[in-house]
């Protein structure tokens, strides 16, 4: 009897010798820069998987967000399951598992800013950018997100765009602020 069908799909059950990294996006999906930064973090922890949050931060820093491909690649690089990496990635709200715009606007919606009417700021941003929380402008310039207390309660309301903190924000200041990023 001659066996010759090879058309059936390849499954990667653990029973097979193939392991986690069989996905299309192996560790070489990461850039040299990313890998060397991750290596540095790995060198400071007792075992590779302990560096996963750092790795996610690094890749997000370079790519803006964490795609499925990035998850698989990080998993392969740290010898973890992709599910384990994603479990951590999806827990933290500042790891973006969806693409974001070039600039992320975080509007503090916590209590002091609430008292100081962050709602007015949000409403104005909504009108100016024509997006709601969780959305990105059509030109991919801004993503608007609500955020828990920015630790700037004495200068509420506060917003943060990328690395820049804006204090005592008024609706009137918004145009000037946004201009810097367009």
């Amino acid at each position: 009897m001659i066996m010759q069908e090879i058309n059936k799909k390849q499954t990667t059950r653990s029973g097979d010798t193939a392991k986690y990294t069989e996905g299309v996006f192996g560790a070489d999906y990461l850039s040299d820069q990313e890998r060397s930064e991750i290596d540095h973090e790995v060198s400071m922890v007792p075992h590779k998987s302990a560096a996963v949050i750092e790795a996610l931060k690094i890749v997000q820093h370079h790519r803006g967000w964490i795609s499925d491909e990035s998850v698989t690649a990080i998993a392969a690089y740290l010898q973890m399951g992709a599910a384990e990496v994603d479990s951590v990635a999806t827990f933290y709200n500042l790891i973006f598992r969806k693409p974001v715009g070039r600039h992320v606007i975080l509007v503090c919606d916590s209590i002091s800013c609430y008292v100081m009417k962050y709602g007015d700021i949000y409403k104005a941003l909504q009108e100016k950018l024509k997006i709601k929380f969780g959305e990105t402008t059509g030109d991919q310039c801004f993503t608007l997100l609500p955020n828990a207390c920015l630790g700037c309660c004495d200068h509420a309301p506060a917003i943060m765009i990328d690395n820049d903190l804006y204090k005592d924000v008024t609706v009137g200041m918004l145009d000037r602020i946004l201009q810097k990023y367009t």
Binding site: R13, S14, G15, D68, A83, F91, N93
Partner: peptide
């Protein structure tokens, strides 16, 4: 010791499953 099932997200959105659809790898 299966690596392909986990918990995702947080608060009352926690989700238990695979990273994406697919055959559970553990026998």
């Amino acid at each position: 010791g299966g690596n392909d099932l986990n918990v995702f997200a947080a608060h009352n959105h926690v989700y238990f499953g695979r990273e994406k659809d697919g055959v559970l790898e553990s026998p």
